[in-house]
């Protein structure tokens, strides 16, 4: 139906990613305004279990596309599959998580369908007959308000941690298998291997709590105190550019303009002065804590709670307090 909202389900390692449950929440909100239903597209190989899981959320319909050639993510394979679902479902809006996969696939499918696309949105609404979004631009220094043309298909990708993840409702939504012949030769870029990072933690962009350290940590070994703090509260560990450039942490953990943009519910900046390069990567976090021994550090202007003190004294005590509170000792 041309007023439905279609959610592209991100599946990695056979897991329905949390971001897709967040997109179901976003879709439910939009569907109230468009007067349509919510459908989910599940694409892959051997995804029956995931499709069943998708159907247990409060959605109206699940579309699946299954093929051995969809075993791992590929832009062209997944685009063909999603285009087939779009043709079948005829949605008004398609939603993606603003993740590596969602951003990659959304721009390719928008170009193929001529859809209006808004990436990396932090607010989204359907009003006055069209899709309206707010998105950070200029590395998060200002917000742009963007509107889609009223006619035609609309697509958006939304940042993680903006919408709460939808809860499973014990639903079993109707499922339709969309048959497409995905020709292996049509996929010009094929994933040979996925190399998981060795940190054993969630990516900083996906975490609800991020603990980041700066150059004041003084060494790679000293990051251990942040790892301990992160363990106590189930956080991921990030780093400032200065700490990454000094070799204390890998670039995959860098938060900021030339690293990752994070949006957790709690961000704890430890020994980070708050250069603009770092601030633009974390200042949309819901609650920000800064720990720094320089009381005039700019980070305090952006923090909700500040501790003016020596991180090597404060952090271990804080870790113990968190353990007491949360029983994670």
């Amino acid at each position: 139906m041309a007023n439905d909202i279609l959610v592209f389900a991100e599946v990695r390692d056979g897991t329905f990613k949390r971001i897709s449950a967040e997109m179901i929440s976003a879709a439910k909100e939009l569907a109230k305004k468009t007067g349509g239903g919510v459908a989910v597209a599940v694409v892959g190989n051997g995804v029956d279990a995931v499709a069943g899981e998708a159907a247990s959320y409060p959605v109206d319909k699940v579309y699946t596309v299954k093929s051995p050639n969809l075993d791992t993510y590929s832009t062209q394979g997944y685009a063909q599959a999603l285009l087939a679902v779009i043709a079948e479902a005829d949605p008004a809006i398609v939603l993606f998580g603003a993740t590596a996969m969602g951003k990659d696939l959304s721009s390719r499918t928008a170009a193929a369908t001529g859809a209006a696309l808004m990436t990396d949105c932090t607010e989204i609404d359907f009003d006055d007959g069209t899709l309206k979004a707010t998105r950070p631009v200029y590395s998060g220094k200002v917000y742009a308000h963007v509107e889609a043309s009223k006619e035609g298909l609309k697509m958006a990708s939304i940042r993680p941690n903006i919408f709460p993840a939808a809860e499973k409702s014990g639903n079993s939504a109707a499922s339709t298998d969309v048959s497409v012949n995905i020709d292996a030769a049509s996929i010009k870029a094929k994933v040979l291997e996925v190399v998981a990072s060795t940190t054993g933690r969630k990516d900083v962009t996906e975490a609800e709590i991020v603990v980041s350290g700066g150059r004041s940590l003084k060494s790679e070994e000293n990051f251990k105190i942040l790892e301990d703090l992160a363990d106590a509260i189930g956080a991921s560990v990030g780093a400032s550019r200065a700490a990454v450039d000094a070799g204390y942490q890998p670039h995959s953990r860098q938060v900021g303009q030339t690293g990752k943009v994070v949006n957790p519910k709690l961000y704890i900046a430890v020994g980070i002065s708050g250069a603009i390069q770092h601030l633009v990567g974390m200042r949309t976090s819901k609650v920000i804590v800064a720990i720094n021994k320089d009381a005039s550090a700019p980070i305090f202007q952006y923090a909700d709670y500040g501790i003016d003190g020596d991180l090597f004294e404060v952090v271990p005590i804080l870790t113990e307090e968190f353990k007491k509170l949360l029983g994670t000792a």
């Binding site: 917000y143 963007v146 889609a148 609309k154 709670y305």
Partner: peptide
């Protein structure tokens, strides 16, 4: 030829002053 257009901008929301402990 564009499906989207920017209709305006807004500054980031100001945070309340930091609470120093």
């Amino acid at each position: 030829g564009s499906g989207t257009q920017v209709v305006g901008y807004s500054p980031l929301k100001e945070r309340p002053p930091v609470k120093m402990l």
